[in-house]
């Protein structure tokens, strides 16, 4: 894949995040994308609280951030299409996120086959060495276009 192709895919990935209604509703911002790695952050928001007593963000909002970030990592990797879907995603919650803090997710697509992309991610609230959650998942790779090309050849 040459430089232009990488730039093209990164642009598609960036725009794609912007047009995902759920990610936009959660206030997510793409910070970095390319070469199978993505970084997306999400602001603290009282509407996303999971426990009114503690003010800690709901695990589901962190899941949505990690899922979006993993998907972005997949589509920015070489040999994948600009569309992907989650096959499975496991999230481990290390500790509650600190109320008021922005949450940042960083995902790496570490292996891609013709059909599946494997991704790992972490989410932290300031210190990447002290994550609030980690994720591991499998995503679809090689969309409709690839399959129809294969079918035709």
């Amino acid at each position: 894949m040459d430089r232009d192709e990488i730039d093209r895919k990164s642009r598609i990935a960036r725009q794609f995040i912007e047009v995902i209604p759920h990610s936009r509703a959660l206030g997510m911002e793409m910070e970095e994308i390319g070469g199978g790695t993505a970084q997306i952050s999400m602001p603290y928001d009282a509407r996303f609280i999971g426990d009114a007593r503690t003010g800690v963000i709901h695990g589901g909002a962190v899941s949505a951030l990690l899922d979006t970030c993993c998907g972005a990592a997949v589509i920015s990797a070489g040999d994948t299409e600009a569309v992907t879907a989650t096959l499975d995603l496991r999230i481990d919650y290390m500790r509650p996120a600190r109320p008021g803090q922005r949450i940042t997710a960083r995902a790496t697509c570490y292996h891609v086959t013709r059909t599946v992309a494997f991704v790992r991610a972490i989410a932290h609230d300031g210190d990447p060495d002290n994550p609030v959650a980690t994720a591991a998942g499998a995503f679809t790779a090689g969309g409709q276009k690839r399959r129809s090309t294969e079918a035709a050849s």
Partner: peptide, 9 residues
């Protein structure tokens, strides 16, 4: 389609 994160939540 629904977002995977919405489904997870």
């Amino acid at each position: 389609a629904l977002h995977g994160g919405a489904t997870a939540a």
